[in-house]
Computed example of a mutant assay.
Amino acid sequence: MRKLLNTLYVMTPDAYLAKEGENVLIRVQEEVKFRIPVHNLEGIVCFGYIGASPAVMALCAERNVALSFLTENGHFLARVTGPVSGNVLLRRKQYRMSDDPVECSKLACAFILGKTANCRTVLQRALRDHSETIQREQVEKAVVSLGTRIEKISRCNSLEILRGLEGEAARIYFSVFDHLILAQKDAFYFCERNRRPPLDNMNALLSFLYTLLMHDVQSALETVGLDPAVGFLHRDRPGRPGLALDLMEELRPFLADRLALSLINRKQIDAKGFIEKESGGIIMKEETRKIVLTAWQKRKQEEIKHPFLNEKIAVGLVPYAQALLLARYLRGDLDGYPVFFWK
């Protein structure tokens, strides 16, 4: 199992990444503000238009440290990686299976099943933890409806029908998502999912967390030797990491949605941390991003018992565990892909 290391998030304006021996440096106006040995890192995520020297890019590529560049509001720009690693036979098997409609349907069914079941768990936990304050009737109705969709998904073998069922389940889940927001309702509300750009504070927070999750999932897939661009549910599109989007589906409710609700309901963030741009889009201020990133890293250090491996692992290792299990299935070592079901 991969050791849980650290992801370095760089948000300082005018920062520049440089290399000194085996260290990654962060310089601001030629002054070294931060220094860390490269072997202590699993990834670097830069927000805003931060520069990086070719030497530090080469160092990260050589040491398998993912280096990603995002805009200040979390929109993905680029990613620097080294030579393609992993077993070429595994990747060829992945490509062949992605062209097989039957195999695509089997894996798509697993991803959508995991996503829908974990969405239902989010609602069930909210009912359990906030039984006196939540609007029970509508949320309980959504739990029942998602259960019905789970039964249909588990019996479906058509990719197009699966996508339709996924859309129905998402509409049911997000139709009651606003009921899970129990504090700061004037600043944080949810009407519908929107992005590019997000048009309210809640969607801005969700989009930011999904971007962080994407970075971790893509790194996990590359670590086990899979191609993040070739998916089974999300079809090929230039520049789109289809397999990373596939694997993210079952992890969004557990890793991102739940954390977003906790940050708001515990009042760790507030409306002052968000700015509305002239275009109508919402972005987070730097201080709020730091709070969210700190909570994200803290969450990744917690432990959970993996439902298939039956052992305790750090939450931050769940994407790597699922990527490894997916690779084992593609190689033929497992009869099916073991979905991550949050209990």
Rank of each mutant, 00 (worst) to 15 (best):
M1G: 15
K3I: 15
L8M: 06
L8K: 11
L8Q: 08
V10T: 12
A15W: 02
Y16C: 06
A18W: 03
A18D: 12
K19Y: 15
E20T: 07
E22S: 15
E22M: 15
V24C: 08
V24W: 02
L25Q: 10
L25A: 14
R27D: 04
E30N: 13
E31H: 13
F34G: 04
V38T: 10
H39T: 09
C46W: 01
Y49M: 09
I50G: 05
G51C: 08
P54Q: 05
M57F: 12
A58F: 01
R63S: 06
R63G: 05
N64P: 03
V65R: 03
A66F: 00
S68R: 01
N73F: 09
H75R: 04
L77C: 11
V80T: 07
T81D: 15
G86L: 02
N87Q: 15
N87T: 13
S105L: 11
K106N: 14
K106L: 08
A108E: 04
A108F: 07
K115L: 10
A117R: 06
V122L: 08
R125E: 06
R128I: 02
T133A: 06
Q135P: 00
Q135R: 15
E137W: 09
E137T: 12
S145W: 03
L146A: 10
G147T: 00
T148G: 13
R163Y: 11
G164I: 13
S175E: 08
F177E: 04
Q184S: 10
A187D: 08
N194Q: 11
R196A: 12
P198N: 12
L199K: 01
D200V: 04
M202N: 04
L205R: 00
L205Q: 11
F208G: 04
Y210W: 13
Y210N: 11
L212I: 09
L212D: 02
D216L: 07
Q218I: 04
A220G: 05
E222L: 02
V224M: 12
G225M: 02
L226G: 00
L226W: 08
D227E: 04
D227C: 04
V230I: 15
G231S: 15
F232P: 00
D236V: 14
G239A: 15
G239M: 13
R240S: 02
G242C: 03
G242F: 01
G242D: 05
L243G: 00
D246G: 07
E249S: 10
F254K: 06
A256R: 02
A256V: 03
R258L: 00
L259C: 00
K267G: 09
Q268P: 04
Q268A: 08
I269C: 04
D270F: 03
D270M: 01
K272R: 14
G273M: 02
G273L: 05
E278N: 14
G280Y: 14
R289C: 03
R289E: 05
T294L: 14
A295F: 09
A295E: 14
K298H: 06
K300P: 01
E302F: 12
H306T: 14
P307T: 13
I313W: 09
V318M: 05
Y329H: 09
G332Q: 11
G336T: 10
Y337I: 13
P338G: 02
W342I: 04
K343L: 11
